[in-house]
Design a protein around this nucleic acid. Structure first.
Ligand SMILES: [Mn+2]
Ligand SMILES: [Mn+2]
Ligand SMILES: [Mn+2]
Ligand SMILES: [Mn+2]
Lengths: 219, 219
DNA sequence: AAAATAATTTAGACAAGCCTAAAAATATAA
DNA sequence: TTATATTTTTAGGCTTGTCTAAATTATTTT
């Protein structure tokens, strides 16, 4: 099945919205994700339903079919492998790779991404800690421990971030928090759920907004 | 200036047709190069003229403006650097890289291609022996010595090919002729201008059609 | 339960890039 | 130098993906 870039972007958007939101994704949510108007989304959804890529009943939202999901995961795989390439080989920063990968993920080839994966020596995660789906589309999702739920006095390792938007990444850079860093929760403030955290460069206060967006592994 | 992939392909086509043909490129030639109908080419040419990327007078053919040429060379640069990447890093064969580079050359980024060039350690030529334009668009064209014009008894080195079409590349593979190979002209047949050539694997007869498409450097 | 609000879909329109068919201009041949 | 053939352009139409405005359906509020 030969899909346009636009169609691929819709599928990818529906895929990730299914995880972060309900099982049946709303027109409005998709329109925000792909940056169009809701009416355009309705048009596209009907086209995708026609091609059996999504389940769709008027006014009931949309979900991916098996084949739709398979394609979405393939695009995610491409996106993340390209991100690894850009960071590891071309030495981009982790806040620069996403936009470029948005383009590269649409390159059409039967062989390219597998050769890239070999070249990159089978990375398991992208620069933001998100898992790289394998060739068959299998994907190991994050265990969803967030920094916010780590108990006082305990240590943990940063393994990913939920929000990989540019401003958040830049903010973490400023705090010098990187994947693999060990963090220790010194204290928690019940009033606003902020926490004092021991990092590689010292103790810093982290708001709940931030700590809810950092995936960690308890030590 | 933000151009569509289609517009970029037209500019690139006009650029290379200017070299292989006359200074003013005809509508029909372009239509063959970009695989559309002549009427579509006329439409596009008028759009490009509107944007000052080509010089155009009705019925008189088309040529690139300075800015049009600059953009065309940038695309050629991207194309060739991606070809090097695909061959050197992902281990594609030289007959597989062109099609993929046709897609990759359209990735939009201020920094990507320069970083790629650094990563590839500033290659001077692509896998077909064509020169890689530098950042400023300077390009060292082939000295145009063809194998067909090498004198009997003399040796030469293969430095490029004029026709990098898939069938021609596959044919050269079969003959085991590669860039860098030394060839010695043993004899020429005046009847059909074919020549007997000493290659790395022995003596083979090469037709004029072939020898006219192989760039060489005399030893 | 009815009214008000919000979300979704439909209708009609537009730009990009392509097509076919017909008209106009140019090139070639008689 | 006409007549014929070829090339190029124009005219009108199609598809994709978008938009605005209006109609419809669903959800909230009263
Ligand atoms: Mn990304
Ligand atoms: Mn990522
Ligand atoms: Mn090529
Ligand atoms: Mn090439």
């Amino acid at each position: 099945m030969m899909l346009s870039q636009t169609e691929e972007n819709y599928l990818k958007a529906i895929y990730s919205l299914t995880y972060t939101n309900s099982n049946n994704v709303s027109t409005t949510l998709i329109s925000e994700a792909v940056k169009t108007k809701a009416s355009s989304v309705t048009d596209m959804i009907q086209k995708l339903a026609e091609k059996d890529l999504v389940h769709y009943k008027k006014y009931q939202g949309v979900s991916l079919t098996e084949i739709g999901q398979k394609i979405a995961v393939e695009i995610v795989r491409k996106h993340r492998l390209w991100e690894v390439f850009l960071l590891n080989k071309l030495h981009y920063n982790w806040d620069e790779v996403h936009e470029l990968a948005e383009q590269l993920e649409h390159i059409k080839s039967e062989t390219l991404i597998d050769k890239l994966e070999i070249f990159l020596e089978f990375p398991t995660h992208d620069p933001h800690g998100d898992p790289v789906p394998d060739k068959e589309g299998n994907i190991k999702h994050h265990n969803d421990t967030m920094l916010s739920s780590v108990e006082t006095g305990k240590s943990c390792v940063v393994i990913g971030i939920k929000d990989s938007s540019d401003p958040f990444l830049k903010f973490l850079d400023k705090l010098q928090i990187q994947l693999g860093n060990t963090l220790k929760v010194i204290s928690k403030e019940p009033f606003d759920n902020s926490m004092l955290v021991e990092t590689t460069i010292g103790s810093i206060s982290i708001s709940n907004q931030i700590s809810k967006n950092i995936f960690v592994k308890n030590l």
